[in-house]
Design a protein around this nucleic acid. Structure first.
Lengths: 343, 343
DNA sequence: GATTAGCACTCAAAAGCGTCGAGTGCTAAC
DNA sequence: GTTAGCACTCGACGCTTTTGAGTGCTAATC
């Protein structure tokens, strides 16, 4: 399994070159560009061995050779040189994760766009709140417009769900507050899935006053167990089309379709140990449609207990060095932000 | 300008056929499939006339002919036969706009996905609140987690903005309510853009108690005029790649890039008279990148004053009949929903 | 006078074909 | 163990030919 030094170097050179050019690489190329002391014939012999060992494939007899998934695996696990980011890149990442992170709106989307514009890969960002913490912490009714009220449910983990209620009549803000406070105390600690039933029970059959409010709330409360996924965004889809491996429209379409299917994106981002960066190559991605792709995911625990998973997807011929550096920096940047908040 | 009946029919046949097949249509095709009484030679003469009148283009001497933008314009304005939807389709649309519409979450996304799966075009959905109504109506602080508080700003038009504040210390819910009420009264009617300054002024230099809260609020309040766009979602991007006009990856990429640029999507959806369905063909779309596309947009005023704009985008060779029927049904469906709410 | 049949002409796309060159594998010499 | 040399493979490229759908024009027909 352990390759002697020269084979190892040659394999690395082949992978590097292929990642760069997407063209099958031949013995002559390696001899000229990477191992000038060796003739192409020697390289040829080594390559032949590497093919036998399962690290290289040949598309056909007289094209060059192409790294196998096994080769990428080795490359990622052992050959990767850390590729330092430029000052601008580091600064750019830091800027993404500054205080604006506080704006609840569409942080995911902004991160996704930023990372895909940096790496030229497609990025998916998912924020999830641990399912067992989907328990009500606080409830609030806020007047929005004529007769209408915004119901806000805050869970222990800090997730916020909102719905608009139509009360059928105007209710004074002060009364809304009273109702909010009473119900908040009464319902705190319940799982969101139990909420609707409990509200229904409280409202009884009485159709007037506070009962009407409670009934309206019950109707708009999610019945089933809510998904623990709070936000999901994909950015930089069009980047895919720049890769020669997707010059075939059908392949591009298949992959784009995956990225439009919520469950599939979630599944791609999910198989992943927490707090770590994981690289999955080809079939390891777990979906038939992405068997020629690699996915690098990174998970970060946020201060409020939610977990953010960022995934970069591209052809197996991926610039792993760059991608890992970027995600590493994202981690550092987030840590810094969390530190700041402790003051 | 008014074409005699036969020319008119022939033109219609050509457009119908081209929309269906995407292939330049020749005289023989028309003679066989649509006007069996006439020989191909006669059709040829008519087509020659139509070309001179600017309704047809010939890609080159011996391909068939292709409708011009002028022809599509005529088609949309005068030739369109209403294409009734199937019962399933109608039901499907109605289901999209039922009570779930109340859930604030990602209605736009759901509509976008539903419509693009129905029509096989790409769909963009935008919800906007009139800018001049971006005025504070109500403000509320809600405890979320340790030391953290969710600040909710509700505008007169019913838009909700939220940010997380870090207060640096725990504050009792009751106190939060008191602060909310006082500030609500004091700040009501201010434009959102003026809010940060006013809060800053109120907090003064005092760093303790209520002042600390107000200061934290000032820091997280949007400084600039907020965009009036509340939500924007795009669905069904991969549908584009099914059209032969995008079998060229570069063209597909260009269009996909447009759909990833927020401002461009907004601009595509914006040039539009309210409460109506508008069809824009080719250059009428207003962007260089979409000069070979058509966009059908429809705007609906929601009960809370917000305006929802739905746009379907595809090649100029678009199934206008189907698309218009679908959007028409969406309008009816929404109206029904609004009626319901009056009860 | 409108319609049609017939024919010459056009042109893109497909098919066929030789050439080129990057690549391999093998063998024999160093 | 390394390399030079050589025969062989095969896709890519460029060229020509063929094919066929389509046009435009003219002369005959209704």
């Amino acid at each position: 399994m352990d390759l002697i030094d020269r084979k190892y170097r040659i394999l690395q050179a082949i992978i590097d070159d292929y990642i760069l050019t997407a063209l099958p690489v031949g013995s002559r190329t390696i001899s000229r560009k990477y191992e000038q002391k060796l003739s192409s014939a020697t390289i040829r012999n080594e390559m032949s061995d590497l093919e036998e060992l399962g690290y290289l494939d040949s598309p056909h007899t007289s094209a060059g050779r192409v790294p196998s998934n096994k080769a990428y695996r080795l490359y990622v696990d052992q050959m990767l040189r850390p590729m330092p980011l430029s000052v601008e890149e580091t600064a750019f990442i830091n800027r993404c994760f500054d205080r604006r992170m506080h704006q609840v709106e569409d942080v995911s989307m902004r991160i996704a766009k930023a990372l895909s514009s940096m790496t030229h890969y497609t990025t998916a960002v998912m924020t999830r709140a641990p399912r067992n913490e989907q328990v009500l912490s606080h409830l609030q009714l806020v007047p929005v417009a004529d007769r209408r009220v915004l119901m806000i449910l805050v869970t222990k983990s800090g997730t916020v769900k909102q719905s608009i209620l139509d009360l059928g009549a105007n209710v004074a803000p002060d009364e809304l507050y009273t109702v909010s406070r009473i119900l908040s105390q009464q319902l705190e600690g319940l799982r969101l899935s139990e909420l609707a039933g409990e509200l229904m029970r409280l409202s009884g059959k009485n159709e007037t006053g506070i009962h009407a409010i409670v009934r309206a709330m019950a109707e708009q409360t999610p019945q089933q167990e809510q998904s623990d996924i709070v936000a999901l965004a994909v950015g930089g889809r069009s980047n895919l089309l720049s890769f020669p491996e997707y010059s075939d429209v059908d392949k591009a379409k298949a992959l784009l379709s995956v990225l439009e299917t919520r469950e599939k994106v979630v599944s791609l981002l999910s198989q992943h140990g927490e707090m770590e960066i994981s690289v999955r190559i080809g079939p390891e991605t777990g979906l038939e449609e992405t068997k020629d792709c690699s996915i690098v995911t990174a998970s970060y625990r946020l201060s409020d207990g939610r977990v953010n998973t960022i995934g970069l997807i591209g052809p197996t011929r991926m610039q792993y060095g760059k991608v890992l550096s970027v995600l590493g920096q994202v981690g550092k940047s987030l840590d810094m932000m969390l530190e700041d908040q402790k003051d």
